[in-house]
Design a protein around this nucleic acid. Sequence first.
DNA 1: GTACCACCTGAGAACCATTCTCACTACAGG
DNA 2: CCTGTAGTGAGAATGGTTCTCAGGTGGTAC
Lengths: 137, 137
Amino acid sequence: MEQRLREREIRYTSGRRVVVAALARAEGPRSAAELSTEIGAAVPLSSLYRSLAVLEDAGVVVPHFGARGLTRYELADWITGHHHHLICVACGTVDDVEILPEYEIKVNELVDLIAQLAGFEPRAHDLEIEGRCAKCS
Amino acid sequence: MEQRLREREIRYTSGRRVVVAALARAEGPRSAAELSTEIGAAVPLSSLYRSLAVLEDAGVVVPHFGARGLTRYELADWITGHHHHLICVACGTVDDVEILPEYEIKVNELVDLIAQLAGFEPRAHDLEIEGRCAKCS
DNA sequence: GTACCACCTGAGAACCATTCTCACTACAGG
DNA sequence: CCTGTAGTGAGAATGGTTCTCAGGTGGTAC
């Protein structure tokens, strides 16, 4: 990751390290507000947003739009491994799920088929499952 | 749909009809701003938002969070048929795709499997494919 | 080691999609 | 018709996010 940033002449400063570390600790996408709470005053909100934007440009973090007017971020697939999302309609939590490679292969086949039929050139996909998490059911 | 609203003692007023009609005409999810442009001054923004909220409660429209701070709405699956989304990274358009029933069955199987492994009770799912649409590639 | 310069940071203001408030209007039942 | 409840419109308020601008900092060249 440091290498990736260096290639793009983006400094991996302490503030950015803190943000990446917080995301690495998380079990799913986190909003700027959640990150800010976790990190504390070390990184002010405006810098936090800027760091997220820079890291997004660099392809290190990926935005996830799962709730009204709230953007959550998580580390990109190439860092954490490809995964999908479970969204709880009761508590709003978004959790990552990794799925067995054989299932992932099937998902990929479907994605390619669907895209091909629509003349669409697929680049990424995300399967979102909405329902009730173990805690809320 | 009228019946569904009547059951819930929600009036299907002319303003709401206009909103539903605009969504029915659209080929994919539309934001409040886009709808407002299309509809014109007949329905002021505040009413438009309220109508969308009411219709969402009634399960007639479904919100779709696909861009930074922007909520797009579309008619619910039970009206338009179940479908997935193609999101163009170049122009930002979100288009609906219906997929062959046999594929949909596979998607459902995968969703059930994934959810089961995570102790999650699935209610709905959405497969989002990101890439370049035919126009932008 | 120090001077430079582009990049980065912090605080607050600005922005903009969305929601709220409140006075007003329009149906539906009696 | 009268009344009550639901719906509407305009504008203010909200809140997540982005912008601005005045410093700070790290990396490079000398």
